[in-house]
Amino acid sequence: MKTDLILAGVGGQGILTIAATLGMAALNNDFYLKQSEVHGMSQRGGEVQAHLRISDKEIASDLIADKTADLIVSVEPMEGLRYLNYLHDEGWLITNSRPYKNIPNYPDVDALIAEIEKVKNHIVLDADAMAKEIKASRSSNIIVLGAASPFINMDYKLIEEGIRTIFSRKGEDVVNINIKALKIGREFTEKKLNA
């Protein structure tokens, strides 16, 4: 089993936290993992992506090849579309619908959502609104991770453990709110899939 996923967003939106959570889950459970990140200049409010590969067998490349990703997980709608060339025909696009407008020529949001809906397999959620509802406005990235979790070949419990490890420094409350965020994201997708 393996999952190749592209994480997408804008610098500062927390995609490296998603990556670190899955990385920690892999480390704690003897999976192989490769995770290529963007640091440096592009982090200043620019487009950022991470390639994340998890497998029970050894992984060769740090980068995912074109049209081979199983998942694109995006915390921003336009950024999710930016890496569509990596997604294979049966792959899933999981994206937050809340735009991050830090450029003057940001496209029409409805048109972006329409493009996302053209992708055969997709889940769109307003993670920011969902985060606000559970009073966890800084955890929208973890809600998106929760929404992607049913497509990641890894036991949900392991991802929860990953959250515990990553956030433990920040105290029990932060751990719990993020576990809740993960859960409501997952439930959103499960509901969609069962509908």
């Binding site: 804008v10 610098g11 200049m41 592009s42 982090q43 200043r44 409010g45 620019g46 487009e47 336009m78 950024e79 579309l81 930016r82 830090n102 450029i103 020529n105 940001y106 496209p107 048109a111 972006l112 493009e115």
Partner: peptide
Amino acid sequence: ILVPRPPA
């Protein structure tokens, strides 16, 4: 529809 988002 994509537009670039350069660092700023």
